[in-house]
Design a protein around this nucleic acid. Structure first.
Length: 424
RNA sequence: GGCGACGUGGCCGAGUGGUUAGGCAGAGGCCUGCAAAGCCUCGUACAGCGGUUCGAAUCCGCUCGUCGCCUCCA
Protein backbone atom coordinates (compact mmCIF):
# COMPACT_ATOMS: atom_id res chain seq x y z
CA UNK A 1 0.00 0.00 0.00
CA UNK A 2 1.58 3.21 -1.17
CA UNK A 3 0.39 6.77 -0.75
CA UNK A 4 1.64 10.23 -1.73
CA UNK A 5 2.59 12.19 1.33
CA UNK A 6 2.91 15.96 1.54
CA UNK A 7 5.29 15.89 4.51
CA UNK A 8 8.00 13.85 2.84
CA UNK A 9 7.04 14.88 -0.67
CA UNK A 10 7.20 11.28 -1.76
CA UNK A 11 5.18 8.12 -1.99
CA UNK A 12 5.31 6.23 1.29
CA UNK A 13 4.47 2.72 2.36
CA UNK A 14 1.56 2.02 4.71
CA UNK A 15 2.06 -0.48 7.51
CA UNK A 16 0.63 -3.96 6.93
CA UNK A 17 -3.04 -4.54 7.85
CA UNK A 18 -2.37 -6.44 11.04
CA UNK A 19 -0.23 -3.66 12.50
CA UNK A 20 -3.15 -2.02 14.29
CA UNK A 21 -5.79 0.51 13.53
CA UNK A 22 -5.29 3.11 10.83
CA UNK A 23 -6.41 6.44 12.22
CA UNK A 24 -7.62 8.87 9.58
CA UNK A 25 -8.54 12.49 10.22
CA UNK A 26 -9.98 14.57 7.38
CA UNK A 27 -10.64 18.25 7.81
CA UNK A 28 -14.25 19.13 7.26
CA UNK A 29 -16.05 22.39 6.58
CA UNK A 30 -16.78 25.49 8.56
CA UNK A 31 -20.53 25.43 8.74
CA UNK A 32 -22.10 28.76 7.87
CA UNK A 33 -23.69 28.14 4.47
CA UNK A 34 -24.63 25.30 2.18
CA UNK A 35 -21.43 23.45 1.23
CA UNK A 36 -20.25 23.61 -2.37
CA UNK A 37 -19.20 20.70 -4.54
CA UNK A 38 -15.51 21.42 -3.98
CA UNK A 39 -16.04 20.83 -0.28
CA UNK A 40 -17.15 17.32 -1.12
CA UNK A 41 -13.75 16.26 -2.40
CA UNK A 42 -11.95 15.64 0.91
CA UNK A 43 -15.03 13.91 2.25
CA UNK A 44 -15.11 11.61 -0.76
CA UNK A 45 -11.38 10.99 -0.95
CA UNK A 46 -11.27 10.15 2.74
CA UNK A 47 -14.34 7.96 2.58
CA UNK A 48 -13.22 6.08 -0.50
CA UNK A 49 -9.77 5.49 0.83
CA UNK A 50 -11.07 4.31 4.21
CA UNK A 51 -13.43 1.99 2.38
CA UNK A 52 -10.62 0.59 0.28
CA UNK A 53 -8.39 0.05 3.31
CA UNK A 54 -11.21 -1.75 5.06
CA UNK A 55 -11.76 -3.99 2.06
CA UNK A 56 -8.06 -4.73 2.06
CA UNK A 57 -8.24 -5.97 5.62
CA UNK A 58 -7.25 -2.90 7.59
CA UNK A 59 -9.04 -1.75 10.65
CA UNK A 60 -9.75 1.96 10.14
CA UNK A 61 -11.18 4.78 12.19
CA UNK A 62 -12.20 7.78 10.12
CA UNK A 63 -12.85 11.14 11.75
CA UNK A 64 -14.23 14.13 9.87
CA UNK A 65 -14.59 17.28 11.89
CA UNK A 66 -17.11 20.09 11.73
CA UNK A 67 -15.96 23.61 12.58
CA UNK A 68 -19.02 25.12 14.15
CA UNK A 69 -17.57 28.20 15.78
CA UNK A 70 -15.64 30.67 13.66
CA UNK A 71 -15.55 34.29 12.48
CA UNK A 72 -17.40 33.35 9.30
CA UNK A 73 -20.34 32.07 11.26
CA UNK A 74 -20.49 35.19 13.42
CA UNK A 75 -20.51 37.30 10.29
CA UNK A 76 -23.04 35.15 8.43
CA UNK A 77 -25.56 35.08 11.28
CA UNK A 78 -25.00 37.91 13.72
CA UNK A 79 -26.58 37.12 17.05
CA UNK A 80 -27.67 33.66 15.98
CA UNK A 81 -24.41 31.96 15.19
CA UNK A 82 -25.23 28.81 17.17
CA UNK A 83 -28.51 28.37 15.39
CA UNK A 84 -26.88 28.89 12.01
CA UNK A 85 -24.06 26.49 12.79
CA UNK A 86 -26.52 23.79 13.82
CA UNK A 87 -28.58 24.24 10.72
CA UNK A 88 -25.57 24.26 8.40
CA UNK A 89 -24.21 21.16 10.13
CA UNK A 90 -27.45 19.37 9.38
CA UNK A 91 -27.25 20.55 5.76
CA UNK A 92 -23.74 19.23 5.42
CA UNK A 93 -24.50 15.84 6.95
CA UNK A 94 -27.51 15.64 4.71
CA UNK A 95 -25.55 16.57 1.57
CA UNK A 96 -22.68 14.15 2.09
CA UNK A 97 -25.10 11.48 3.30
CA UNK A 98 -26.57 11.49 -0.19
CA UNK A 99 -23.33 10.09 -1.56
CA UNK A 100 -24.25 6.90 0.24
CA UNK A 101 -20.76 6.01 1.41
CA UNK A 102 -21.20 6.06 5.19
CA UNK A 103 -17.56 5.38 6.10
CA UNK A 104 -17.08 8.18 8.62
CA UNK A 105 -17.02 6.98 12.22
CA UNK A 106 -17.20 10.35 13.93
CA UNK A 107 -18.12 13.90 12.96
CA UNK A 108 -16.80 15.79 16.00
CA UNK A 109 -17.89 19.40 16.48
CA UNK A 110 -15.67 22.02 18.00
CA UNK A 111 -18.38 23.26 20.36
CA UNK A 112 -18.64 19.79 21.86
CA UNK A 113 -14.88 19.60 22.39
CA UNK A 114 -14.15 22.82 24.24
CA UNK A 115 -12.75 21.09 27.34
CA UNK A 116 -10.10 19.01 25.54
CA UNK A 117 -9.17 22.11 23.56
CA UNK A 118 -8.70 24.16 26.73
CA UNK A 119 -6.60 21.39 28.26
CA UNK A 120 -4.45 21.33 25.17
CA UNK A 121 -3.88 25.08 25.33
CA UNK A 122 -3.13 24.91 29.03
CA UNK A 123 -0.41 22.40 28.40
CA UNK A 124 1.12 24.50 25.65
CA UNK A 125 1.19 27.45 28.04
CA UNK A 126 2.83 25.33 30.69
CA UNK A 127 5.51 24.25 28.27
CA UNK A 128 5.99 27.86 27.18
CA UNK A 129 4.96 27.11 23.64
CA UNK A 130 2.21 29.65 24.11
CA UNK A 131 1.53 32.91 25.91
CA UNK A 132 -1.63 34.62 27.07
CA UNK A 133 -2.15 38.32 26.45
CA UNK A 134 -5.30 40.37 26.95
CA UNK A 135 -7.60 37.36 26.88
CA UNK A 136 -5.99 35.87 23.77
CA UNK A 137 -3.57 33.01 23.72
CA UNK A 138 -0.97 32.71 20.97
CA UNK A 139 1.32 29.95 19.84
CA UNK A 140 4.99 30.89 19.95
CA UNK A 141 6.32 29.89 16.55
CA UNK A 142 9.90 30.73 17.47
CA UNK A 143 9.84 27.72 19.85
CA UNK A 144 9.30 25.35 16.91
CA UNK A 145 12.55 24.96 15.01
CA UNK A 146 10.83 22.69 12.52
CA UNK A 147 8.07 25.13 11.69
CA UNK A 148 7.54 24.99 7.92
CA UNK A 149 8.46 21.34 7.33
CA UNK A 150 5.06 20.45 6.01
CA UNK A 151 4.39 23.33 3.63
CA UNK A 152 7.96 24.19 2.68
CA UNK A 153 7.35 27.71 3.91
CA UNK A 154 10.35 29.13 5.71
CA UNK A 155 9.42 30.82 8.96
CA UNK A 156 11.32 33.98 8.14
CA UNK A 157 9.51 34.47 4.86
CA UNK A 158 6.01 34.08 6.26
CA UNK A 159 4.78 37.61 5.75
CA UNK A 160 3.13 39.70 8.32
CA UNK A 161 -0.62 39.93 7.99
CA UNK A 162 -2.76 42.41 9.93
CA UNK A 163 -0.34 43.92 12.41
CA UNK A 164 -1.33 42.65 15.83
CA UNK A 165 0.54 44.37 18.65
CA UNK A 166 -0.36 41.62 21.09
CA UNK A 167 1.78 39.09 19.25
CA UNK A 168 5.42 38.66 20.16
CA UNK A 169 6.13 37.64 16.59
CA UNK A 170 3.96 38.27 13.54
CA UNK A 171 4.07 34.56 12.67
CA UNK A 172 2.42 33.56 15.92
CA UNK A 173 -1.16 32.40 15.61
CA UNK A 174 -4.15 32.37 17.95
CA UNK A 175 -4.99 29.35 20.05
CA UNK A 176 -7.73 31.15 21.96
CA UNK A 177 -9.50 34.33 20.94
CA UNK A 178 -11.03 36.66 23.50
CA UNK A 179 -14.72 37.20 22.99
CA UNK A 180 -15.73 40.36 21.11
CA UNK A 181 -18.92 42.31 21.82
CA UNK A 182 -20.53 41.38 18.49
CA UNK A 183 -19.90 37.67 19.03
CA UNK A 184 -22.81 35.83 20.60
CA UNK A 185 -21.03 32.65 21.61
CA UNK A 186 -18.17 32.20 24.05
CA UNK A 187 -16.83 29.89 26.72
CA UNK A 188 -15.17 30.60 30.04
CA UNK A 189 -11.53 29.81 30.43
CA UNK A 190 -8.55 30.58 32.62
CA UNK A 191 -7.70 33.34 30.15
CA UNK A 192 -11.17 34.85 30.06
CA UNK A 193 -14.27 34.43 27.96
CA UNK A 194 -13.54 33.45 24.44
CA UNK A 195 -13.39 30.62 21.91
CA UNK A 196 -10.81 28.42 20.24
CA UNK A 197 -8.70 29.57 17.33
CA UNK A 198 -9.08 27.69 14.10
CA UNK A 199 -6.08 25.38 14.20
CA UNK A 200 -6.17 24.08 17.75
CA UNK A 201 -9.46 22.25 17.30
CA UNK A 202 -8.02 19.69 14.91
CA UNK A 203 -5.00 18.98 17.07
CA UNK A 204 -7.19 18.50 20.11
CA UNK A 205 -9.94 16.50 18.42
CA UNK A 206 -7.55 14.26 16.54
CA UNK A 207 -5.73 13.44 19.74
CA UNK A 208 -8.94 12.89 21.65
CA UNK A 209 -10.41 10.53 19.06
CA UNK A 210 -7.38 8.93 17.42
CA UNK A 211 -4.68 9.17 20.04
CA UNK A 212 -1.50 11.27 20.03
CA UNK A 213 -0.13 9.78 16.83
CA UNK A 214 -2.10 8.41 13.91
CA UNK A 215 -1.61 7.38 10.28
CA UNK A 216 -3.27 9.74 7.87
CA UNK A 217 -4.35 13.36 7.99
CA UNK A 218 -6.22 14.68 4.99
CA UNK A 219 -7.76 17.81 3.59
CA UNK A 220 -7.59 20.19 0.67
CA UNK A 221 -4.26 21.39 -0.70
CA UNK A 222 -5.26 24.91 0.20
CA UNK A 223 -5.09 24.28 3.94
CA UNK A 224 -1.56 22.93 4.02
CA UNK A 225 -0.46 26.36 5.09
CA UNK A 226 -1.14 27.70 7.58
CA UNK A 227 -3.76 25.32 8.98
CA UNK A 228 -1.96 22.00 8.86
CA UNK A 229 1.45 23.52 9.46
CA UNK A 230 0.08 25.01 12.66
CA UNK A 231 -1.60 21.81 13.75
CA UNK A 232 1.66 19.97 13.32
CA UNK A 233 3.57 22.57 15.31
CA UNK A 234 1.05 22.51 18.17
CA UNK A 235 0.91 18.77 18.41
CA UNK A 236 4.63 18.28 18.22
CA UNK A 237 5.06 20.96 20.85
CA UNK A 238 3.60 18.48 23.30
CA UNK A 239 6.43 16.09 22.69
CA UNK A 240 4.76 13.45 20.60
CA UNK A 241 4.40 12.85 16.91
CA UNK A 242 1.22 13.69 15.05
CA UNK A 243 -0.03 12.43 11.69
CA UNK A 244 2.45 10.22 9.86
CA UNK A 245 1.10 10.75 6.37
CA UNK A 246 -0.50 13.89 4.97
CA UNK A 247 -2.98 13.33 2.16
CA UNK A 248 -3.87 16.59 0.42
CA UNK A 249 -6.38 16.50 -2.37
CA UNK A 250 -6.22 18.80 -5.40
CA UNK A 251 -8.59 21.71 -5.74
CA UNK A 252 -11.80 21.66 -7.67
CA UNK A 253 -11.75 24.47 -10.20
CA UNK A 254 -14.68 26.22 -11.74
CA UNK A 255 -14.52 28.98 -14.35
CA UNK A 256 -10.75 28.79 -14.33
CA UNK A 257 -10.06 29.11 -10.62
CA UNK A 258 -10.59 27.36 -7.36
CA UNK A 259 -14.23 27.05 -6.43
CA UNK A 260 -14.69 29.06 -3.29
CA UNK A 261 -17.32 31.06 -1.55
CA UNK A 262 -15.12 34.14 -1.44
CA UNK A 263 -14.71 34.09 -5.22
CA UNK A 264 -18.41 33.37 -5.62
CA UNK A 265 -18.00 30.68 -8.31
CA UNK A 266 -19.96 28.16 -6.33
CA UNK A 267 -22.31 25.27 -7.03
CA UNK A 268 -23.71 23.56 -3.97
CA UNK A 269 -23.44 19.82 -3.38
CA UNK A 270 -27.19 19.75 -3.15
CA UNK A 271 -27.76 21.41 -6.52
CA UNK A 272 -25.17 19.31 -8.31
CA UNK A 273 -26.64 16.11 -6.90
CA UNK A 274 -30.12 17.21 -7.85
CA UNK A 275 -29.05 18.03 -11.37
CA UNK A 276 -26.74 15.12 -12.21
CA UNK A 277 -27.43 12.37 -9.70
CA UNK A 278 -25.05 10.76 -7.26
CA UNK A 279 -23.57 8.24 -9.67
CA UNK A 280 -22.45 10.88 -12.14
CA UNK A 281 -21.04 13.03 -9.35
CA UNK A 282 -19.06 10.14 -7.88
CA UNK A 283 -17.74 9.17 -11.32
CA UNK A 284 -16.81 12.77 -12.03
CA UNK A 285 -14.48 12.76 -9.01
CA UNK A 286 -13.19 9.28 -9.75
CA UNK A 287 -11.95 10.28 -13.22
CA UNK A 288 -9.23 12.44 -11.69
CA UNK A 289 -6.47 11.30 -9.39
CA UNK A 290 -7.23 12.57 -5.86
CA UNK A 291 -4.07 14.65 -5.82
CA UNK A 292 -4.75 16.44 -9.13
CA UNK A 293 -6.86 19.51 -9.61
CA UNK A 294 -10.17 18.82 -11.29
CA UNK A 295 -12.31 21.16 -13.40
CA UNK A 296 -16.00 21.26 -12.79
CA UNK A 297 -18.06 21.90 -15.92
CA UNK A 298 -21.31 20.82 -17.53
CA UNK A 299 -19.29 19.07 -20.22
CA UNK A 300 -17.40 16.94 -17.76
CA UNK A 301 -20.53 16.19 -15.78
CA UNK A 302 -22.27 15.08 -18.96
CA UNK A 303 -19.31 12.87 -19.71
CA UNK A 304 -19.51 11.36 -16.21
CA UNK A 305 -23.21 10.74 -16.68
CA UNK A 306 -22.51 8.96 -19.97
CA UNK A 307 -19.94 6.88 -18.16
CA UNK A 308 -22.53 5.91 -15.55
CA UNK A 309 -24.91 4.84 -18.30
CA UNK A 310 -22.17 2.90 -20.00
CA UNK A 311 -21.37 0.97 -16.85
CA UNK A 312 -25.03 0.30 -16.16
CA UNK A 313 -25.31 -0.92 -19.74
CA UNK A 314 -22.62 -3.49 -19.05
CA UNK A 315 -25.12 -5.31 -16.87
CA UNK A 316 -27.77 -5.51 -19.54
CA UNK A 317 -25.59 -7.70 -21.66
CA UNK A 318 -24.46 -11.21 -20.89
CA UNK A 319 -21.63 -11.61 -18.45
CA UNK A 320 -18.33 -12.62 -19.96
CA UNK A 321 -15.37 -13.76 -17.91
CA UNK A 322 -12.75 -11.07 -17.51
CA UNK A 323 -9.15 -11.88 -18.41
CA UNK A 324 -7.04 -13.67 -15.86
CA UNK A 325 -5.56 -11.29 -13.30
CA UNK A 326 -8.12 -8.53 -13.85
CA UNK A 327 -8.91 -8.07 -10.19
CA UNK A 328 -5.22 -8.13 -9.36
CA UNK A 329 -4.59 -5.25 -11.73
CA UNK A 330 -7.52 -3.32 -10.32
CA UNK A 331 -6.25 -3.89 -6.82
CA UNK A 332 -2.76 -2.81 -7.71
CA UNK A 333 -3.95 0.44 -9.26
CA UNK A 334 -5.68 1.35 -6.00
CA UNK A 335 -2.95 0.02 -3.74
CA UNK A 336 -0.52 2.23 -5.60
CA UNK A 337 -1.45 5.72 -4.45
CA UNK A 338 -5.14 5.07 -4.97
CA UNK A 339 -5.24 5.70 -8.70
CA UNK A 340 -8.95 5.73 -9.40
CA UNK A 341 -8.57 6.82 -13.07
CA UNK A 342 -6.58 3.70 -13.75
CA UNK A 343 -9.02 1.50 -11.86
CA UNK A 344 -11.93 2.99 -13.81
CA UNK A 345 -10.21 2.37 -17.12
CA UNK A 346 -9.83 -1.30 -16.23
CA UNK A 347 -13.48 -1.58 -15.26
CA UNK A 348 -14.57 -0.30 -18.65
CA UNK A 349 -12.95 -3.28 -20.29
CA UNK A 350 -14.81 -5.80 -18.16
CA UNK A 351 -18.03 -7.55 -19.11
CA UNK A 352 -17.84 -9.80 -16.10
CA UNK A 353 -20.87 -9.02 -13.95
CA UNK A 354 -19.54 -10.32 -10.67
CA UNK A 355 -16.20 -8.61 -10.99
CA UNK A 356 -17.77 -5.35 -12.10
CA UNK A 357 -20.24 -5.34 -9.28
CA UNK A 358 -17.45 -5.91 -6.82
CA UNK A 359 -15.38 -3.07 -8.27
CA UNK A 360 -18.32 -0.67 -8.42
CA UNK A 361 -19.08 -1.39 -4.79
CA UNK A 362 -15.60 -0.21 -3.84
CA UNK A 363 -16.71 3.27 -4.84
CA UNK A 364 -20.27 3.08 -3.58
CA UNK A 365 -21.60 2.55 -7.08
CA UNK A 366 -23.24 -0.84 -6.68
CA UNK A 367 -26.50 0.86 -7.68
CA UNK A 368 -25.27 0.76 -11.28
CA UNK A 369 -25.41 -3.02 -11.10
CA UNK A 370 -29.07 -3.27 -10.17
CA UNK A 371 -31.72 -4.62 -12.51
CA UNK A 372 -34.89 -2.59 -12.73
CA UNK A 373 -38.30 -4.08 -13.33
CA UNK A 374 -40.71 -2.20 -15.54
CA UNK A 375 -44.12 -1.42 -14.08
CA UNK A 376 -47.00 -3.68 -15.14
CA UNK A 377 -48.59 -1.11 -17.43
CA UNK A 378 -45.35 -0.66 -19.35
CA UNK A 379 -44.97 -4.42 -19.58
CA UNK A 380 -48.47 -4.55 -21.02
CA UNK A 381 -47.66 -1.91 -23.65
CA UNK A 382 -44.54 -3.82 -24.61
CA UNK A 383 -46.47 -7.05 -24.90
CA UNK A 384 -49.00 -5.42 -27.24
CA UNK A 385 -46.20 -3.88 -29.25
CA UNK A 386 -44.61 -7.27 -29.69
CA UNK A 387 -47.93 -8.63 -30.99
CA UNK A 388 -48.15 -5.77 -33.47
CA UNK A 389 -44.61 -6.44 -34.62
CA UNK A 390 -45.29 -10.10 -35.16
CA UNK A 391 -48.32 -9.07 -37.19
CA UNK A 392 -46.04 -6.65 -39.07
CA UNK A 393 -48.21 -3.74 -38.04
CA UNK A 394 -45.31 -1.34 -37.70
CA UNK A 395 -47.44 1.77 -37.48
CA UNK A 396 -49.09 0.40 -34.35
CA UNK A 397 -45.85 -0.96 -32.94
CA UNK A 398 -44.08 2.39 -33.38
CA UNK A 399 -47.01 4.16 -31.77
CA UNK A 400 -46.74 1.82 -28.77
CA UNK A 401 -43.02 2.35 -28.59
CA UNK A 402 -43.62 6.09 -28.33
CA UNK A 403 -46.01 5.45 -25.46
CA UNK A 404 -43.49 3.27 -23.69
CA UNK A 405 -40.86 5.93 -24.10
CA UNK A 406 -43.19 8.56 -22.75
CA UNK A 407 -43.46 6.37 -19.66
CA UNK A 408 -39.67 6.49 -19.30
CA UNK A 409 -38.76 3.10 -20.76
CA UNK A 410 -37.01 1.90 -23.84
CA UNK A 411 -37.75 -1.30 -25.76
CA UNK A 412 -34.96 -3.25 -27.31
CA UNK A 413 -35.90 -5.94 -29.75
CA UNK A 414 -34.16 -9.26 -29.63
CA UNK A 415 -34.43 -12.31 -31.89
CA UNK A 416 -37.87 -13.48 -30.79
CA UNK A 417 -38.27 -11.33 -27.76
CA UNK A 418 -37.84 -7.84 -26.40
CA UNK A 419 -36.36 -6.25 -23.38
CA UNK A 420 -37.33 -3.19 -21.37
CA UNK A 421 -34.75 -0.87 -19.90
CA UNK A 422 -35.19 2.47 -18.16
CA UNK A 423 -34.57 5.37 -20.50
CA UNK A 424 -31.30 7.14 -19.76
C1' G B 1 9.11 37.80 -5.07
C1' G B 2 9.19 32.74 -2.21
C1' C B 3 7.25 27.58 -1.89
C1' G B 4 4.65 23.68 -4.50
C1' A B 5 1.79 21.00 -8.34
C1' C B 6 1.32 20.52 -13.40
C1' G B 7 1.35 20.98 -19.14
C1' U B 8 -0.44 13.91 -23.55
C1' G B 9 -4.98 13.71 -29.74
C1' G B 10 -12.01 17.68 -29.85
C1' C B 11 -12.73 16.74 -24.17
C1' C B 12 -11.07 13.68 -19.94
C1' G B 13 -7.05 10.54 -18.70
C1' A B 14 -3.18 6.11 -18.26
C1' G B 15 1.65 5.44 -19.66
C1' U B 16 8.55 6.91 -16.89
C1' G B 17 13.72 4.58 -22.79
C1' G B 18 12.02 0.87 -28.07
C1' U B 19 5.76 -2.95 -29.03
C1' U B 20 -2.58 -1.10 -28.77
C1' A B 21 -4.08 2.34 -22.70
C1' G B 22 -9.19 3.26 -21.60
C1' G B 23 -13.56 6.49 -21.56
C1' C B 24 -16.62 10.50 -23.75
C1' A B 25 -17.62 12.92 -28.30
C1' G B 26 -17.11 12.13 -33.83
C1' A B 27 -16.92 9.18 -38.86
C1' G B 28 -17.96 4.56 -41.52
C1' G B 29 -19.82 -0.49 -41.42
C1' C B 30 -22.48 -5.12 -39.62
C1' C B 31 -27.11 -6.23 -37.34
C1' U B 32 -32.59 -4.24 -37.30
C1' G B 33 -39.25 -3.48 -40.47
C1' C B 34 -37.15 1.18 -38.39
C1' A B 35 -34.57 1.88 -33.96
C1' A B 36 -31.85 0.98 -29.47
C1' A B 37 -28.10 -2.02 -27.53
C1' G B 38 -24.00 -4.83 -29.17
C1' C B 39 -19.87 -5.81 -32.37
C1' C B 40 -16.00 -4.23 -36.15
C1' U B 41 -13.01 -0.29 -38.38
C1' C B 42 -10.99 4.83 -38.19
C1' G B 43 -7.42 9.39 -34.65
C1' U B 44 -0.48 8.32 -35.06
C1' A B 45 -1.01 13.03 -29.56
C1' C B 46 2.69 13.97 -25.89
C1' A B 47 3.85 22.92 -24.45
C1' G B 48 8.55 24.94 -27.00
C1' C B 49 13.90 24.83 -27.72
C1' G B 50 18.43 22.45 -26.88
C1' G B 51 21.14 18.06 -24.96
C1' U B 52 22.17 12.64 -23.58
C1' U B 53 21.12 7.97 -26.43
C1' C B 54 21.35 3.40 -31.82
C1' G B 55 16.42 5.05 -30.07
C1' A B 56 12.70 9.89 -25.59
C1' A B 57 6.11 11.56 -24.33
C1' U B 58 9.41 8.91 -20.85
C1' C B 59 16.36 11.14 -18.65
C1' C B 60 19.05 16.32 -18.23
C1' G B 61 18.97 21.78 -19.01
C1' C B 62 16.55 26.17 -20.36
C1' U B 63 12.14 28.81 -21.91
C1' C B 64 6.90 29.57 -22.06
C1' G B 65 2.19 28.73 -19.89
C1' U B 66 -1.64 27.13 -16.17
C1' C B 67 -3.19 26.34 -11.15
C1' G B 68 -2.59 26.40 -5.76
C1' C B 69 -0.36 28.38 -1.23
C1' C B 70 2.29 32.48 1.09
C1' U B 71 -4.39 36.25 3.90
C1' C B 72 -10.35 33.37 5.56
C1' C B 73 -10.68 28.99 2.37
C1' A B 74 -11.62 21.54 1.51
Amino acid sequence: MRLSDTLTGSVVELPPPSAGEIGMYFCGPTVYARAHIGNARPYLVGSWYARWLRLRGYSVKLVHNITDVDDKIFVAAPGRSGERADRATAWYLDDVGRFGLDEVDEFPRVTAMIEPIKDFIAELLEREFAYAVGGDVYFRVSRSPEYGVLSGQRPEQVEEQEPNPRKEDPRDFALWKASKPEEDRSWDSLWGKGRPGWHIECSAMAEKLLGPAFEIHGGGRDIVFPHHENELAQSRARGHDFARIWMHNGMLRFTGEKMSKSVGNVETIMDVLDEWGREAVLLFFLTAHWRSPIDFSAERMASALARADGLRESFRNPSQPAPEGSWERFKESLDDDFSTPEALALMHEWRDHELLRRALDVFGLASLAEEQEAPAEVEELARRRQEARVARDFVESDRLRAEIEAAGWEVRDEADAYRLVPKA
